[in-house]
Design a protein around this nucleic acid. Structure first.
Lengths: 145, 145
DNA sequence: GTACATGCAAAAGATTTGCACTCTT
DNA sequence: AAGAGTGCAAATCTTTTGCATGTAC
């Protein structure tokens, strides 16, 4: 995904401001990372000190609505954002329910899984998120199964 | 899941208080619903007016750590809780990224999908959550794909 | 008796909002 | 010019925490 594609997604309705452009670049520069609004804020601030945190939240809401980012929840008290791209469809997250550790793993849903559902519910699917919950190696002894 | 099973999960370490028992019954009485802490609080309060909201949160954290409930995030500003049971492994959630509507759908991951991963990462999986994001029928016209 | 649990009120955080001002198109 | 977007500060809300007291085992 690049700036012209972003413009295209904006479809004339939303404007490509300097702030949104820098935020977008922050996301592409950290592809594969799980950035919180605060993380993005701190990064963008280095290049554009006047930026407000509210702008980050507003951009994330727009990007999420347009299917540009996924909003993730690992249960650590804030939402995290990750670009939607080919890569994002091929990894999932395992979260330790005791210590909160997040482990990424490769994998994708079986091909036939998704289209069926979409058709069944008049729901146009852009993306999905698959979370596995359990005990990481270190925490397996602390809580019983 | 019933009270003796709950006791067993507590494993002598955690106590079966009247509050936890009522909270637990609230969950079983509303199986299949997606209750927020506030929802649970309001329900429990009818039967046990002295209950504090903090107790709900503390119980939910414990139940989640013990694999009794799943903590869900539909992006509506609060976490929601649902009992883990056989049923919970057989449905997923579709969330409209525009209006936030949540649609449940039947389905489960292919059997062979899960164990591989667990083994691969020394991660003992209790449960998983699969979210699909897209546009519901009503919102498909508001934002472009 | 001893850990563990609770209620309350305060604190902490994340996210949202109102508003005057500015910028993209 | 006009609709959108922004920064700031205040407001909102959810969730957590400290502490004195109460309770299950």
């Amino acid at each position: 995904m690049n700036i012209p594609e972003l413009q295209q997604k904006f479809n004339g309705q939303y404007k490509l401001t300097r702030q949104r452009e820098i935020i977008f670049h922050t996301l592409t520069d950290h592809a594969g990372r799980h950035l919180s609004a605060e993380d993005i804020y701190n990064t963008v601030r280095q290049q554009y000190p006047e930026i407000g945190l509210a702008t980050i939240y507003r951009a994330m809401e727009l990007f999420n609505n347009l299917g540009i980012v996924q909003k993730l929840d690992f249960g650590d008290g804030c939402h995290r954002y990750e670009l939607c791209d080919h890569h994002s469809r091929q990894h999932h997250h395992m979260i330790c329910i005791v210590c909160g550790k997040v482990i990424e793993m490769a994998g994708y849903l079986p091909d036939k899984f998704e289209p069926d559902i979409s058709h069944m519910n008049d729901f146009s699917i852009l993306d999905y998120q698959l979370y596995f919950y359990g005990y990481c190696k270190e925490c397996q002894s602390k809580y019983r199964k």
